[in-house]
Simulated assay, not measured.
Amino acid sequence: CDKDFGNSMWIYVLLGNLLRGIGEAPIQPLGISYIDDYASEDNTAFYIGCVQTSAVIGPIFGFLLGSLCAKLFVDIGSVNLDSVTITPADAQWVGAWWLGYLIAGGIIVLATIPFWFLPKEQPRVETGKTPSTPSEQSRFILEEQKEATTEQDGVHLLNMAKDFLPSVKDLFGNPVYFLYLCGSVFQYNSLIGMVTYKPKYIEQQYGQTSSKTNFLIGLINIPAVALGIFSGGVIMKRFRINILGAAKLLLGPSLLGYLVLLSLFAMGCKNSSVAGLTVSYQGSAQISYQENEVSECNVGCKCPQTHWDPVCGENGLTYYSACFAGCRVSNGTGKRA
């Protein structure tokens, strides 16, 4: 039968992520500026470190939450779970992916409640800042006044464009900023690769469920991240590292970790022996995919080629589905009907 693929539920997911991104965007520019303006110099680094740490640890706890939700059936609460004849180990299992959004959204709503009780104006903490080192807020005010003055003087867009390249040159000439930028590039390259490909790689190569995969990733990374943050704090306090030294400390381990992860390209597993895809139905390496697409045992079954539900045969080969393996009846890997 023909299925209707005109489901528009993805639009709601897209809009939800769009609104979430709008809400998360001010955290870095406004949150850090707020801390810099109203916290004492002794506590500013600690508070900013807490914000940055939560941004790193948050996705790891997200994997643990995803592991829990993946164990639950997608229609939990609306169907009788006793009638579900498959388990999370089955390729057709779909976990309650939507539940994570509700839980995370509820936590975010609770976290926003204290912000409603903040006063309009905070008492500024007296610090040792001199006029030569103005606060973040005063710098914004000076920049706004300067921009207003230049607009009144009739500065054109062309003149602003001429100042762009020298400003970028000065910015990249700042050693602290440049080292921080390089360290961040190495960190996010490693993080994005792990979040995007590692779960699916573990599922495919080691035959693990999505629930167990997410749990393992969170379990492996949480102790490592916690140990790294603690060690960095101890090193900075022990050797009294300044700002430039802290930037070097960021770049060094980030580069070393990135090089270690690059070594993973030299490792890998052999392709699975999938009949009709990587090997022939007789088990020998095939030359053309079209030549071994079907075999004598399934030529008359009219198996759907878009249905990927791999099964293992007694001969050590993996088949597209039970239909391609020549089976007339399949009960899945869950409860037997």
Score class of each variant (00 low, 15 high):
Cys1Phe: 08
Cys1Asp: 09
Asp4Glu: 04
Phe5Asp: 13
Ser8Lys: 15
Trp10Cys: 12
Trp10Ala: 15
Ile11Arg: 13
Ile11Ser: 12
Val13Gly: 13
Val13Gln: 13
Val13Pro: 13
Leu15Lys: 07
Leu15Ile: 14
Leu19Cys: 10
Arg20Pro: 02
Gly21Val: 03
Gly23Met: 05
Glu24Gln: 15
Ala25Thr: 11
Gly31Pro: 15
Tyr34Lys: 15
Tyr34Asn: 15
Asp36Lys: 15
Asp37Arg: 14
Tyr38Arg: 09
Tyr38Phe: 14
Glu41Gln: 09
Phe46Met: 13
Tyr47Val: 11
Gly49Pro: 08
Ala55Leu: 15
Val56His: 10
Ile57Gln: 03
Phe61Gly: 09
Phe63Gln: 11
Leu68Asp: 02
Cys69Phe: 11
Cys69Ile: 07
Ala70Tyr: 04
Ala70Gln: 10
Ala70Thr: 03
Leu72Lys: 14
Phe73Ala: 11
Asp75His: 13
Val79Ser: 09
Ser83Ile: 08
Ser83Val: 06
Ile86Ala: 04
Pro88Asn: 06
Ala89Glu: 14
Asp90Thr: 02
Gly95Met: 08
Trp98Lys: 13
Gly100Glu: 05
Ile107Asp: 10
Ile108Ser: 11
Ile108Thr: 13
Thr112Glu: 10
Ile113Met: 14
Phe117Glu: 11
Pro119Gln: 08
Lys120Asn: 11
Pro123Cys: 05
Arg124Gln: 14
Val125Tyr: 10
Glu126Cys: 11
Gly128His: 05
Ser132Met: 08
Glu136Gln: 14
Phe140Tyr: 11
Ile141Asp: 10
Ile141Gly: 02
Glu144Lys: 12
Glu144Met: 08
Glu147Pro: 01
Glu147His: 13
Lys162Glu: 14
Pro166Gly: 07
Asp170Tyr: 08
Pro175Gln: 00
Tyr177Val: 12
Leu181Glu: 01
Ser184Val: 06
Val185Arg: 01
Asn189His: 04
Ile192Gly: 07
Ile192Val: 13
Tyr197Asp: 07
Lys200Arg: 13
Ile202Pro: 02
Ile202Leu: 15
Glu203Met: 14
Gln205Gly: 00
Thr209Trp: 04
Ser210Glu: 07
Phe215Arg: 14
Leu219Tyr: 07
Asn221Trp: 06
Ile222Leu: 14
Pro223Val: 05
Val225His: 03
Ala226Ile: 10
Ile229His: 01
Ser231Glu: 03
Ser231Lys: 04
Gly232Met: 04
Lys237Ala: 05
Lys237His: 04
Arg238Ser: 08
Phe239Ala: 03
Ile241Gly: 03
Ile241Phe: 05
Ile241Asp: 02
Ala247Leu: 02
Leu251Arg: 01
Gly252Tyr: 06
Leu256Trp: 00
Gly257Trp: 04
Tyr258Glu: 01
Tyr258Gly: 04
Val260Asn: 10
Ala266Ile: 06
Met267Arg: 12
Met267Ile: 09
Gly268Ile: 02
Lys270Ala: 09
Lys270Pro: 03
Gln282Val: 00
Ala285Lys: 15
Gln290Phe: 06
Glu293Arg: 08
Glu293His: 05
Val294Trp: 02
Val294Arg: 03
Ser295Trp: 00
Cys297His: 07
Asn298Gly: 01
Asn298Glu: 00
Val299Ala: 08
Val299Leu: 04
Pro304Gly: 06
Gln305Cys: 05
Thr306Glu: 12
Trp308Ser: 09
Cys312Phe: 06
Cys312Gln: 09
Glu314Tyr: 01
Glu314Gln: 05
Thr318His: 04
Tyr320Trp: 09
Ser321Pro: 01
Cys323Lys: 00
Ala325Arg: 03
Gly326Leu: 00
Cys327Ala: 02
Ser330Trp: 12
Arg336Trp: 05
Ala337Leu: 05
